[in-house]
Simulated scan of single mutants.
Amino acid sequence: MRKLFIALVAAVTIAGSVMAVPGEAEARWRGGAVAAGVIGGLAAGAIIAGAAAPYYYAPPPPPPVYYAPAPVYYGPACRWVKQRWWDGYGWRVRRVQVC
């Protein structure tokens, strides 16, 4: 239906441009005819554009979705402690990570 309408409008436009024959040249001012032509052209353009425009309705937004948070792995509880150890010459203290 839409393609038929567009083809019909195109055929009428071409036929109208072929049939438009310039009239006799006149030296008087015809301001009313120009205004009527402009108004008629705007009205015809609005009607044709309204008929040819696609009917578009935006789809509704998607429903809200809840995602569970990812599980958090904390790992073993580690801490730093001071440890005494013998190096062969005497006792020394060092920091060691204990998990």
Rank of each mutant, 00 (worst) to 15 (best):
A58I: 06
L42A: 15
R30A: 10
M1C: 01
R30P: 00
V98F: 10
W91D: 13
A77T: 12
Q83M: 11
G31S: 04
E26S: 03
W29Q: 00
G75A: 05
F5P: 00
G88Y: 12
A10F: 09
G23Q: 06
D87M: 09
C99K: 12
A44Q: 14
T13V: 11
Y89G: 14
A15V: 04
A25Y: 03
W29K: 00
V21Y: 03
G90Y: 13
A15S: 09
I47R: 02
Q83L: 04
W86A: 08
G45K: 04
L42Q: 10
A7H: 05
V21G: 03
P69G: 03
V96P: 01
A27S: 08
G37R: 12
Y67G: 02
R2D: 04
V65P: 00
E24P: 03
R84A: 14
R95D: 10
A27G: 05
R79F: 13
P60G: 09
V98W: 13
P62I: 00
G40F: 08
A68C: 05
A33L: 11
L42K: 09
A52L: 03
G75W: 09
G90K: 13
Y74W: 07
A58P: 02
P59C: 06
I39C: 12
R92A: 07
P62G: 12
Y55P: 00
F5Y: 12
G50L: 04
V9I: 15
R95L: 09
A33T: 15
W91Q: 06
L4I: 03
P63C: 01
I6W: 01
R94M: 11
L42H: 10
Y73A: 00
Y56M: 00
